[in-house]
Design a protein around this nucleic acid. Sequence first.
DNA 1: CCCTGATTCGC
DNA 2: GCGAATCAGG
Length: 169
Amino acid sequence: MNWTDERVELLRKLWAEGLSASQIAAQLGGVSRNAVIGKVHRLKLSSRGRAAPAQTRQKKPKPAGTKAQRPAAAPRAMPQTVGATALKVDYEAEPAVRPSARPAENVVVPISRHLKLAELTDKTCKWPNGDPLTEEFHFCGNDSLETGPYCTYHARLAFQPASERRRQR
DNA sequence: CCCTGATTCGC
DNA sequence: GCGAATCAGG
């Protein structure tokens, strides 16, 4: 995989959104999280917004080859773990239940359109399916025009109290 | 041990 | 420029 303009653009977006490097790598596909981090640095996107004090970074003595040590780059700041945690929090806290939950038996589970994060609009259901770190991860993507962030089915899962959900069948 | 980003450096 | 290996740390 090479860094096309589209992929770089998506990288910029997701990085700005606060996704972790590994999650971005999963979304992009075909690259490792190291590749993403490397690219992020080359694009100079490193500090995601906040400029903070200074993180002390130790230099790393290479095992064998004696190479010249650099003066160590300028210390920068980290917004303090927004990455996987951010999306995971969304993933677990926003929807009241996991997509795998079975709320009602007489309700037809919608067939997901399998949209990528970048493909979502304000009219598509943002219910996440699968693990953000896997290739299979996608969003429901069905029409949510009149039901907010979710389609009618997922809106019920997302906004119904646990007690209601329990005796729903 | 899971994860995070940061850095180095051979390619 | 790219990214695996490696690092420090939560």
